[in-house]
Design a protein around this nucleic acid. Sequence first.
DNA 1: AAAAAGCCCAACCGCGAAGGC
DNA 2: AGCCTTCGCGGTTGGGCTTTT
Length: 273
Amino acid sequence: MGRQPCCDKVGLKRGPWTIEEDRKLVNFIINNGIHCWRTVPKLAGLLRCGKSCRLRWINYLRPDLKRGGFTEMEEDQIMQLHSCLGNRWSKIASHFPGRTDNEIKNHWNTKIKKRLKLLGLDPLTLKPAEQKEKSGDDIKNIELQPNTSKGSEQGVENKSLDMHGTREVAKTEGKIEENEVTWDDTTGIFNNYEMLCSQLDLGSWVSQETKSSTSSYCSSSFSLDDSSNHSVGESSYLQENSLQQWVDDLDSILSWDNFNSLEKDFLFLDNRQ
DNA sequence: AAAAAGCCCAACCGCGAAGGC
DNA sequence: AGCCTTCGCGGTTGGGCTTTT
């Protein structure tokens, strides 16, 4: 007998979440906390399964999420941790407050893994891969990349990625400058957002409800200890009002309209490349 | 300018673990 | 002890976006 599905999928919505769905989910969690994911969609008025709601919250809606591309230091750390922990993404993510396991996994699969392969390094050990592993397609790629127009990005990044994941060495100066400006300019924006998030003791209000829900909230990649270590002012006034502020600003946060316009204004998306 | 190819990432799926009854 | 439910994790997919031809 097969395993029962996690939910009755008949009539349930799938695919990308709408702003309205996001709003409903966040409003519900804000007001009620997380007791049981299975009941969340029903109580929140969503035609989703609990699993989908959990994923959406953890990977996208959590207020403490850090947005933006991975820094070189983070990439370096990911490589080191992956060499020790393997594909235990949740464990790796636990070292990066504000990052999700899914995010790190995607970044690994789409960027880091490729770069290491092109460098002839074994993604698992960070050591030079065996010669036999470099035969075939891999070795062709290594030889061809720098000269192929298609490999312009990969080739440049490949050449510039040193053993510590430092990328800027061989990038064009213009690109470096652009990235630096982009990052510096947007840092303030994100700091404000992160400050707000770090002031939200969401874990506390969740833990007030049930111990288990607290663990489920924290277990993926968010550590309350980590978040409280952000050396942000902790006046009770701020803590009390920041949550309300976040709720008040929910629409703009959820739709990311303001956020996206800021991203565009400061070429933030370039920084993600 | 249009089509094709490649890339990226949000979301889904299925399995195992944990905990309650 | 065994069954059932729920959660969390890791692998995979598919569609939108970007780049190349």
